[in-house]
Amino acid sequence: MIEIDRVTKRYGAATVVDDVSLVIPRGGVTALVGANGAGKSTLLSMIGRILHPDSGTVRVDGMDVARTQSAVLARRLSILRQENQVAVRITVRELIEFGRFPYSSGRLTGEDVAAVDRAIEYLQLEEFANRPLDRLSGGQRQRAFIAMVLAQDTGYLLLDEPLNNLDMRHAAQAMSLIRRMAEELQKTVVVVIHDINFAAYHAGRIIAMKDGRIVADGPPETVVSPSILSDVFDIDVPVHQVEGHLPSTSAPPPATAPSRRRRPQPCPARCANHPLMRAPLPASLPRHRHRPVHIKAVAGAAMIYRWGTAR
């Protein structure tokens, strides 16, 4: 569990993160969204002890990150920032081996080698394992760095804009990989992300920040709404929901449309009070499918929710 208790960070007169308290339980993908300068990355860096808060504390599994030995934390939590992905001339394998540094300080044991092999296999990097980083494409390098934090084998994974500089295909792949890591490997992933569509599709929880404060927090179905998004981004964001398999290009259905359909089956998680649940669903959808399967960007900030069948 990550507990953030009244954390504040200032740069001179500017307060970047303003008295934020937050609890992120174990498991699942949590997305931090917000405009540039909203304090998302700063907050993430403070959780990952790269920055120190001016006041407040951050605890990971009960350990105060400011007081705990950095090497101990490195086995619990890893943080990957876009900026540090330098094209250094070391091979992919050497990079991934550095992920084991917190365990063996560079003298790899058999266990370390096994972890490195697993990470390479999980990200399908066998082909590139002996290639230097400066001869990889952006997407390949991204995967190499993710493999490194995977080899680091931490329960918590903090990712700062992992989709930067990736084209649509690679971004989609990276994001489903991140989700797969949360689901298959039981990791707790906190990801700073700009693309609301990806956040809504993959995250179980979205935390929206503005001017250093949290302005919305909840499952995508509640946070991804025109009113909240226009408040967060200061721009009108129509949210289109896609029903069935067909993207609807018409206006979004009114959230308060009278419900004519059958009562939704109780949802296992999170969307009991889902505003979109009150929207009429086509008869072809026999019962409520809880997960918005795909959200696709139309021009600009417009979005389409695809209310798909369960997979």
Partner: peptide, 21 residues
């Protein structure tokens, strides 16, 4: 200390993530 130097050379955040001072 060669490994630590390499890690520091990859940037502060990279080094801190791996528990290097």
């Amino acid at each position: 200390f060669a490994n630590r130097f390499t890690l520091v050379g990859m940037g502060r955040e990279f080094a801190v993530n791996l528990g290097v001072h």
